[in-house]
Write a protein that binds this DNA or RNA. Structure first.
Lengths: 337, 337
DNA sequence: CCTGGCACTCACTAATCCCGAGTGCCAATT
DNA sequence: AATTGGCACTCGGGATTAGTGAGTGCCAGG
């Protein structure tokens, strides 16, 4: 029903439209790509493609424009993933290697992706879920106030202030710290949360009230879904390409953490690339946008996701290449540190 | 040279222009504000104001528009700072009180300011400069790799990975940790940096090579100007108001840390409000924008700055009110924690 | 199944027109 | 000297019109 030539025509239409932003007609198609048939033939093919919903015309007597369905087919069957050039790969490597911090890794990744694709990049912080407790530190910072610091084996540090109703002396703090580390060190965060409940028994009765405050805060950190932190960058690229209509909608959507989470949530928990096109996106206001996302992490384990967002009319092959490459490198960096 | 009525006219022009975005003419001025004179009189006044450079006309036979100089005069002499409503103040308070983290405070402040003013908010992280060392922690996270964690008395936590060329055993680490804390605890960061140089002498010769790596990283943290971290939010508000022309320029500028720093740098090191109007801004591409900035911190001490950026045609009184109020509340929060 | 031919459509641009808000200036008034 | 009403003039912007050309659909013949 869709023979090879029709597919070729669809591909050609998409390529031209992506690069010119203008509806493409049968004539220009024929001579830009070397299809060895006449425009009239192409017109027939186009009529079929339109009937099937792969392309559409903005007005009668204008060229054709790909539909979401057209892009979908293109991504699924016609387009590969374009590998990055050696220069680009080197750039990624050196840029990411300079990071000294988890924060820094994430920030740099966003910039990198945005720059590479000239679109909007979205990156989620690596999840704490599967990391384990390396060390817990308690530091008095004011009377009746402690700072609880949790260090994980992935090098991530979580901090939280603890308000005490009554003062605890240094000795008790030391004791509490010792107990915490003895019992929780090396445990997965999820497991650790379970163990916390048993701890009061191991603490001197006199200290229990104070300890309770600390433990409850600790529990918050352990349980909290910290993977909910998401950052984005490259908004300026939106303005450059004319996202004419819904620029404001898109910007608004991007500033909502919840929306970003939902976008990334669409991507499966794998290192596979996922592409959501136009109306496939869960978020209204992003119906003119496509999102290329993937999981990343150390090795096979998916710790978080990242994505690139752009107009449906985007260079899918290139974007997918960049997303995949960056995800891999970031994974590598995370595995090392 | 500028009598009271002329000033009143200028004020009226600015008010009308800010609210309508359209050049304002003598007729509409007279009946919207109750100036008890005829349009012709106003026209004479406007001619004078124009001659002096406070207003301009986009084309012959159009109404007048304020110039940067006009806004300047308005801000300096005609406009007060509009206090927030009780509801707004309550909103600020509750919203900021929920923060549990320095990161969180900053993030929330940005959102708050952006929402309150419907413009772009820029907030700098509080400086570490004047805080002091509370605790230093060394945690092995992999062979040949340590995590160095610095906790300050303001509750801020800095972390950095340390690469070791050779392994250090746990005992040496404990020793090093003890030395670090003994010598640096309680010191201002700046002082601490000086002390670090003396530390090798206090460390067992065998451990010195490993310690050197740790110390050099520590020095970086102490010296680094961490106040250079700046975040912004509310970009969607830019698109809403028609920043017609240079939206892309503005977005690009906002995504450059350096630019943000320069913007904030213009503000003096005080809790005074600073207003930069149009071309007064140091950054090209922001010549259609105005920036209202101020320092904030615990008490009188200025730890960092924050700002709101919008079109020159902004509601200065309201924006200034919001900036001042938010800065105060944030200061309060910081002082408490 | 492909192709050339042909009539038709319609978005977009340029040219033109028209209106009215707004101006500057001047002479008369207070 | 300041204010005012009157008046001619300007000119941006919306509305209208006309022209152009890329593009289409369809058909009859190869």
């Amino acid at each position: 029903m869709l023979d090879d030539r029709k597919l070729a025509v669809l591909r050609a239409i998409i390529e031209d439209y992506v690069s010119t932003t203008e509806p493409v007609g049968s004539k220009s198609l024929v001579d830009r790509h070397n299809l060895d048939v006449s425009p009239a033939t192409i017109r027939n093919d186009m009529a079929v493609l339109e009937e099937q919903g792969y392309i559409a015309q903005p007005h009668t007597s204008a060229g054709r424009v790909p539909t979401d369905k057209g892009y979908r087919l293109f991504v699924d069957r016609l387009s590969g993933v374009k590998p990055l050039s050696a220069a680009e790969r080197r750039a990624i490597e050196t840029f990411l290697a300079g990071a000294y911090d988890l924060d820094d890794v994430v920030t740099r990744t966003v910039r990198l992706l945005a720059q590479l694709t000239r679109q909007v990049a979205v990156v989620q912080y690596p999840s704490l879920r599967s990391s384990s407790v390396r060390h817990i530190e308690l530091v008095p910072i004011a009377p009746g106030r402690l700072l609880l610091v949790l260090i994980t084996d992935t090098g991530r540090v979580e901090q939280r202030a603890v308000e005490l109703t009554q003062n605890i002396d240094d000795e008790s703090i030391a004791h509490l710290r010792a107990v915490l580390n003895a019992c929780l060190d090396g445990r997965q965060l999820a497991d650790a949360a379970g163990v916390v409940a048993d701890l009061p028994a191991r603490i001197a009765p006199a200290d229990r009230p104070g300890a309770a405050a600390v433990l409850s805060v600790l529990l918050t950190i352990l349980v909290e879904r910290h993977e909910e932190k998401v950052v984005f960058g490259g908004a300026a690229n939106l303005a450059a390409r004319d996202f004419s209509k819904g620029l404001q909608d898109v910007l608004e959507a991007l500033e909502e953490q919840v929306v970003l989470m939902r976008l990334l949530g669409e991507s499966g928990d794998t290192v596979q690339l996922t592409v959501k096109i136009g109306a496939e996106n869960p978020v209204a206001g992003l119906h003119d946008a496509s999102v290329v996302s993937t999981g990343y992490g150390a090795g096979d384990q998916v710790l978080a996701k990242l994505a690139v967002l752009g107009p449906t009319r985007m260079d899918y092959a290139g974007t997918m290449g960049a997303v995949r490459a960056v995800a891999r490198y970031v994974g590598q960096i995370l595995a090392e540190s």
